[in-house]
């Protein structure tokens, strides 16, 4: 296109447009290839999980996977009831959400509506530190402090490894995520809406609960879903503090084996490659992946459906 225009008139001024074009196209192709790496990664994940899960289902029928009520892959009469692991994950993740949602949401309200500039400048970095602590550290905290020194004195008979302690600390670990995403959503609610409520004689609390939070709902819900997905997929806290004992039920005071902890258990070196226990870890991984994917899709749909547009 530029060639036809004959833009360069001066002899001194002869930009090499062909070379520029070539450089540009090369760069574009390379960066596009880089962008494509993410697609390959997803493809790789899905393919890996599918291939090994199919191998697994070649030996253990999917029906057994969903209907059995025990998880004993290393026994001679092996059973593969995924419900056992799911019930463990739901216990730790459920407790985590019960901690992270109120703490995170109230903290978000605090930061955006109540804390002054100076207090905020102190609190935000502290929450960032909390968010940046590796989960293995939280696991250590749950195992060596929360269970023996905080919970066992309160709940006699609490097992040294238990879903409760893991869940509580997991909640603490994901709370900063809820806080920061909810705060963004709350902060984005326009001032005019708050003014509208105040002008009707609403108090600050009434304004926040009846107007600001509903207006920020899509952002808050998506932060919550992200937190749930994080809680389900978190590994180190539950591996260290919740135990390795497959346990079906809803009791949070006993040791449990979550999906992620099972995968760690297998790859820590117990099971030989290609064995049925090894393959079962991929089936569990697949289940985990599907659960987080569904949450992701739901969140995407919810935000699209319920996001309110403000000028």
């Amino acid at each position: 296109m530029t060639a036809e225009l004959r833009l360069s008139r001066s002899e001194l001024w002869q930009p090499n447009r062909n070379k520029n074009k070539l450089v540009e196209n090369t760069v574009k192709a390379i960066t596009a290839a880089f962008a494509f790496v993410s697609v390959i990664a997803t493809f790789g994940i899905v393919l890996t999980l599918i291939v090994e899960t199919i191998h697994f289902f070649g030996v253990v029928s999917p029906l057994r996977f969903i209907s059995e009520t025990r998880w004993t892959p290393l026994f001679s009469s092996a059973q593969f009831g995924i419900i056992v692991l799911i019930s463990a994950t739901l216990r730790t993740a459920g407790i985590a959400i019960l901690v992270a949602l109120p703490l995170g949401l109230l903290s978000a309200i605090c930061l955006s509506e109540y804390a002054g500039v100076r207090v905020r400048k102190i609190l935000k970095p502290l929450l960032e530190i909390l968010a940046g602590i590796p989960t293995v550290v939280f696991g250590y905290f749950a195992l060596t402090l929360v269970t023996p020194q905080l919970l066992q004195p309160l709940i006699p008979g609490l097992s040294g490894l238990n879903a409760l302690s893991a869940g509580l600390v997991l909640g603490l670990a994901i709370m900063p995520l809820v806080t920061s995403l909810s705060e963004d959503a709350i902060y984005a609610v326009p001032r005019s809406l708050r003014d509208g409520a105040y002008a009707l004689g609403a108090t600050k609390r009434e304004t926040i609960i009846a107007v600001v939070l509903p207006a920020a709902l899509s952002g808050i819900v998506s932060s919550l879903i992200l937190a749930v997905s994080r809680a389900i997929g978190e590994t180190m806290i539950v591996t260290l503090a919740a135990g390795q004992t497959p346990n079906l039920g809803i009791d949070p005071t006993v040791a449990v084996l979550t999906m992620t902890a099972y995968i760690v258990q297998i790859f820590k070196g117990d099971a030989p490659a290609g064995s049925i226990a090894y393959l079962s870890a991929y089936a569990v991984g697949m289940t985990l992946f599907v659960m987080t994917l569904l949450l992701n899709i739901f969140s995407f749909w919810f935000v699209r459906r319920f996001r309110e547009k403000y000028e």
Partner: peptide
């Protein structure tokens, strides 16, 4: 009561 410059109905 008060009515504002831009309409601000609650969501």
């Amino acid at each position: 009561g008060m009515v504002f410059q831009r309409p601000n109905p609650f969501p």
